[in-house]
Design a protein around this nucleic acid. Sequence first.
RNA 1: GCCGGAGUGGCGGAACUGGCAGACGCGCACGACUCAAAAUCGUGUUCCUUCGGGAUUGAGGGUUCGAUUCCCUCCUUCGGCACCA
Length: 866
Amino acid sequence: MAKGAAVKPAAPAVKDISYNPRVVEKKWQAKWEADKLYRAVIDERKPKHYALTMLPYPSGDLHIGHWYAMIPPDARARFKRMQGFNVLFPMGFDAFGLPAENAAIKDGVHPMKRTYANIERMRKQMRSMGAMFDREREAVSADPEYYKWTEWFFIQLYKHGLAYRKKAAVDWCPKDNTTLAREQVVGEGRVCERCGTPVIKKNLEQWFFKTTKYADELLNFDGIDWPQTVKTLQTNWIGRSEGAEVNFHIASEKELGNQESGIRNRDGLIPPDSQSLITVFTTRPDTLWGATFMVFSPEHPLVDKITTPEQKAVVDEYKAQAARQSDIEREAADKEKTGVFTGGYAINPVNQARIPIWIADYVLMSYGTGAIMAVPAHDERDFAFARKYDLPIVPVIQPEFQNEAEMGNPSTGSGQRMKAAYIGDGVMVNSGPFNGTKVNTEKGRKNPGIRKVIDWLEAQGIGKESVNYRYRDWLISRQRYWGAPIPMIHCEKHGWNPVPEDQLPVLLPEDVEWKPTGESPLKLHPTWKNTTCPVCGGPATRETDTMDTFMCSSWYHLRYLSPHYNKGPFDQAEYNYWMPVDTYTGGIEHATMHLLYTRFFHKALRDMGITEGNEPMLQLRNQGMVLAEDNSKMSKSRGNVVAPDVLVEKYGADTVRAYIMFFARWEMGAPWDSQGIEGTARWIRRVWALFTDQTPPTTASVEVKKNLRRKVHQTLKRVTRDFERFEFNTIISSLMELMNEMYKAREAGAAGSADWNEAAEIYLKMLAPVAPHIAEELWTNHLGKPYSIHQQMWPKVDEAAAKEDVIEIPVQVNGKVRDRIMVPAEASEDQIKSAALASETVQKYLEGQEPKKVIVAQRRLVSVVV
RNA sequence: GCCGGAGUGGCGGAACUGGCAGACGCGCACGACUCAAAAUCGUGUUCCUUCGGGAUUGAGGGUUCGAUUCCCUCCUUCGGCACCA
């Protein structure tokens, strides 16, 4: 800091206002491109750094959000490069997808034509950013040379048993006319992630990837530096829950015949055959003795078998009604529970209790086994159901310190007086051999009660430890044209077989018609689907569905390594050098989609010997969102989008880049402020003037120069740290501060001195990643340094120079700052202490009293307590 | 309901590991330059004030010599999940 420095006015500098970003930026962009300055090639002598930013969909126009996503990572990649890393920073296009096809249905423009025109336009716009993308690494997922390998990967997954076909109730978007992965259905209304239309269920046979095989491994984030929020989102999405599977069986004739004699049936137990076995999943096996009824999902296959003739009419009616309801209606959590009795009974294997079987739509066929044991005393949902239909409630967990009135009286075997289900800890009661066992609120084996019961169930052969996941396999079929074809052939005799690999890629036919029929144009194409069976050579048909575009983006980071390589998806040498990705950046909206798929993909490939290591991306950072000025979301339809092209035209790319980095915390985002950019523009112009003004001769004092040098190295230290941490806004403010100091130093006559020249050099090097054009122009043409600034090494901090020699220390009396004292930086704590107590102001506040305590805190503050 | 993030001047935000709250910028006010405006430059700018000070980082409490920072309770807001047995 320049505190205490005598600022002597010098002759005013002569202003140079020749800064014209349009000329400067065009000039350098052309030169850098001609020189292939940003070409990244393998160089074993240098450490590598793979910086990756999520690739855009070619929507047609680059908007401010793209800049926000790409520019700060670009600046950081440039910084890494100056630090001596060999940096790969590629860009490409996620070019398949619905919007282009939907537009084609409207106006007949072929998706391919539209997509490639959009790409061309966006390439041009991207050039104006002045980013260090390696153009020769660009990959476009809709290029046959790309999707050939997307198809190839499908076949590898198929061959390794990770791609399979099954009929299932799948989510269908009636507007986009296609199935969707579970992840693409969002929100309370269960709507299509893309178009907001409520989805419906369809029973279809579709292709799936076995993502669930990796569920446990995907929960492990060891060795990767990812934001906690993403890890939490993925963990919740996978939804692992630990418990047990328990085998109940349908009560036999004999068991039913005994019903007068009560719950127990000691003699003549008929061993349950597999037909009458009902397996349930429960996270609370410790409450098994409290199961007083069972509930089946209305779709459960055993429902018809157990339903008695008397109950058939109501059961059929309930089933029909459940089938009619949409998912939204059915899954509304606050809906009152309904259900009907089937007339059938099951036998609880732990105590032979004969319990009624109901069906209810709150039990989902898609989770667990589609059937549950209901323990109304200790589960809120079961409690509500039991109350409504007057089913017995038997408490089996007794809280240790609660009176009977609240709990009901367990000794009578009745929980009818309970006001709510009890889900806390306590002691097992009414539970045969387990009475007295303590139960806490831990999940799974960590809970002593659950652990003991699971071990016992396994010993008895009536159940086993089990884990269930909310996570589903990834549905990848899309009934659309504009995607990578699923390379499978169906033959009447030989079923499904992959297209022989030497016949890849299966190319999309170009002569297709756009009709809003809801069927894939591939299916309607007269000849495309006809082919021969790879097994017998007989007539066969191609799969006409295409792949979810998330399949393309699951491996694009590999295609960038060698986008035109034709012997495999990537060149092994490139892989060995560049992978894994060192820093990955993008929006958090992909937490449970792309980011989970790409981890799955990498692990599956690893198990096939194609990739190495457990994770594809070591470090992940998410940028926030740029909102419109009124805090609303930017969208074309609202007409509130900020067009970067206009800003570049007005201020130049360097200013837009700097403002993008400055105006918000990058990971948070903020509403756009079109006035705020004026401040950044002013700064850039002032930087230009600082370096181009004609300055008076050097007259500065030693002190002024020393202070300048201190500020330079303090700033360098801070900027270096902030680049590492993705704290871009403070990089800019530090550079603004240093510039202000340099203006003051110049006014004090520092220009032209050795310290000034060092400051100028370091300043431009720090500016180079942020504002590459102006930094290059000032570096080569005004400082006369060798081209290019972007090939210079990042400067080293001189710690000694950065140190203050006099420090100002605030003195608190009873927690309030009363004075500030100046002491030498090397002063001992004792010296600081006496200096503080010597202060007149401090003495005044002491009012003659002896201080009780004097704390000198890390030479930063003195605290006097009276 | 459950899980996670955030809450600091008129605004965006800063504050290293518990140690001077409000850096930097926008906006605003005043001044210089100008016939005038813009641009530019300079000064000021958390609030209250009886000009001594006092209050202040969503609210309340706690730990501490000292809390924007740690702990507890609550409020607001954003995001995710949601009858998951």
